[in-house]
Design a protein around this nucleic acid. Structure first.
Lengths: 153, 153
DNA sequence: CGGTATCCGTTCTGATACTG
DNA sequence: CAGTATCAGAACGGATACCG
């Protein structure tokens, strides 16, 4: 296998000693890097979709590939491996002549599913607002000189 | 500016016509790509942190940089721009001799903050479980031949 | 069918230098 | 202080070829 087995030393600069200086933070500095790391993984393009698809049902490799559709075989494998490693999905290999492998959410994965659904729900609920904000920003970006209307002189 | 102004045609293969084939999905195929796109942005390493930091307080560019610490000036700028474009943070420029720019969450950003806090909370609550799962997986990975204990014969 | 290993282009990110 | 522009290296992601 090629992907890193280390989950903490993935990239330098993540967990540099930043202690005892901030005051009003929700996240702890030492913990923060870990949270970010996990979050970055579960909020991954494909991970999110796979977890959503695996809700209340078990799917085969090919079935998942068909559902996600846009994903390549490589990325599906990698995503599934990460999810399995994190204990979010369970992999069942059936020793039959045409190999059959089923993937299902673990109890931990189910709890995550509930949580990400909240985030997805928020996103769905605010798609319009974000789109509108983007349009506004885009317009403003096309206005280099807003022509100050303040009291000149 | 260099970053893309288009928010939908970022990458090919995202929104390929995948309609009327799946059955038990929570997310709609056409909507999915948008949700994923937004999600991918707000769940960004830095975006998440910036939003968390901006909760209930306004911060200057340098202050944010100090807090996030590991972030480069470039990434902070880019992250802030994206967040501003999505209508999640508000940018206030004070026309003083030493330039002063304050960043604060918009009402929309505040609602997002609540939601991502749930996700962060989940992650914090399950750090140990994930770490344990990883250790288990890592051990299994170091066992190429599990020595089948089934009925040999 | 399910998966691995490799090659290669695209994207992301950080370091650096420069501006107002 | 608050950015912008450019470059180089790392990581990501897809296509391909091959295996059990």
């Amino acid at each position: 296998m090629t992907f890193v087995e280390e989950g903490t030393s993935k990239s330098p600069g993540y967990c540099t000693g930043t202690e005892g200086d901030y005051t009003a933070r929700q996240w702890d500095g030492r913990e923060d890097c870990e949270v970010r790391q996990i979050l970055d993984r579960i909020a991954d393009k494909w991970s999110l979709l796979v977890i959503a698809l695996l809700d209340r049902q078990s799917l085969r490799f090919t079935e998942l590939r068909r559902e996600v559709d846009g994903i390549s075989q490589r990325m599906l494998t990698v995503t599934l491996r990460q999810l399995e490693r994190d204990g979010l999905v369970h992999r069942t290999v059936h020793p039959v002549v045409p190999p059959r492998v089923d993937y299902a959410l673990t109890p931990l994965g189910v709890t995550l599913h509930h949580t990400i659904q909240s985030l997805v729900h928020w996103t769905e609920s605010h798609l319009d607002e974000i789109a509108a904000a983007r349009s506004r920003y885009d317009e403003r970006a096309a206005t280099p000189v807003p022509a100050a209307t303040g009291p000149a002189g």
